[in-house]
């Protein structure tokens, strides 16, 4: 178990290095940040001086080594666009995105899981058919369209919810939260719903497929033959056996929620990292872009590690056998 974690951590380290390398080398080709930083009238000497100051003239390996060396200390340099340390910029944006992703993930799980169980149990029921049809819509409609439709209905026509921004936030240390004010909750509803819709339908369909698979197994038949209640059979025995694939997919989806958040944040002008990243691309703000990609990769790695550990919690077959088992 412990050796397993160490091994996974080492693998994660390699992944992080690879991501850092790829993102850093890619961004050397997205444009010259100096053009955006100095005015039209800047002389060639001024430009050159700035390049030297930013270290842009150094050979690639040296630039990369400097980037890694600073990054492990949490220093991703200074944003070219905002002239502030990238770590500060990200620290102000990170809570917004994480809270959005958190609410979306919770919604997707809390709604998707029961709906999946329901449609898996009542395969031929009318309710299941309606839900499956609706889920097709959820899977096929693009995020920005759903977002804009929600804004049209709930912000423009009904005027119930704000159409953009985070509303009122409360500062706790460096973390700003939506969860402590009514306006904050009102603001997060629409972006979170928009963001979760795809994941929700995915989880629902996955749980449904897994449930149908598991319900056919012998141990479910045997559980029924033992006279266990439907509740125990469906939730105790069947649902738990669907959990390994569901945990895998959900874990990966939390990562892609952060990625999808770019679009949602743009539609709702949500001041999170996705929006920051888009602005950084337009400005060729390399330090911000590199830091963003490294952070997302880091979150992915952490989630994957947690998923692996959850397998151990769910499935006893994966646990290390100390007491020399069967014979």
């Amino acid at each position: 178990m412990f050796a397993f974690i160490i091994r996974r951590l080492l693998q994660s380290l390699i992944v992080m290095l690879a991501v850092a390398f790829i993102s850093f080398s890619l961004f050397n080709f997205v444009g010259d940040p100096v053009n955006n930083m100095v005015g039209q009238e800047a002389t060639a000497e001024q430009r050159e001086a700035l390049r030297v100051q930013l270290g842009l003239n150094d050979p690639f390996p040296i630039q990369f080594a400097r980037f890694i060396g600073n990054a492990v200390q949490g220093d991703f340099g200074v944003s070219y666009r905002l002239s502030r340390p990238v770590s500060d910029v990200i620290a102000t944006r990170l809570p917004a995105t994480l809270e959005l992703v958190f609410v979306a993930a919770v919604l997707a799980l809390v709604i998707g899981l029961p709906l999946g169980v329901y449609t898996g149990l009542h395969r031929h029921g009318f309710g299941s058919k309606v839900l499956l049809t609706l889920s097709l819509i959820g899977i096929s409609l693009p995020t920005f369209l759903i977002g804009i439709m929600l804004i049209l209905i709930f912000a423009v026509w009904l005027g119930w919810l704000p159409s953009f921004g985070r509303g009122d936030t409360v500062q706790i240390g460096w973390w700003s939260t939506n969860f402590l004010t009514v306006a904050g909750w009102k603001s997060i509803i629409m972006p979170a719903v928009t963001l979760c819709l795809f994941q929700l339908t995915l989880i629902m369909r996955l749980v449904r497929a897994e449930m149908m698979e598991v319900l056919r197994t012998d141990y479910i038949k045997f559980a029924r033959a033992r006279g266990l209640s439907n509740r125990a059979v469906h939730f105790g025995h069947a649902l738990k056996n669907t959990m390994v694939p569901v945990i895998t997919i959900t874990g990966l989806q939390i990562g892609s929620l952060i990625a999808f958040a770019i679009i949602t944040e743009t539609v709702f002008q949500w001041p999170g990292m996705g929006l920051l990243f888009l602005q950084a691309i337009q400005f060729a703000d390399i330090p911000v872009m590199a830091a963003y990609l490294c952070l997302v990769a880091f979150i992915f790695v952490v989630i994957n590690l947690m998923v692996d550990l959850l397998y151990y919690a769910v499935d006893p077959r994966l646990r290390v056998e100390r007491s020399g088992g069967g014979h």
Partner: peptide
């Protein structure tokens, strides 16, 4: 049942 390998829930 026939198959003892699949009659028991592997997770409990």
């Amino acid at each position: 049942f026939q198959d003892p390998l699949t009659s028991l829930n592997p997770l409990y």
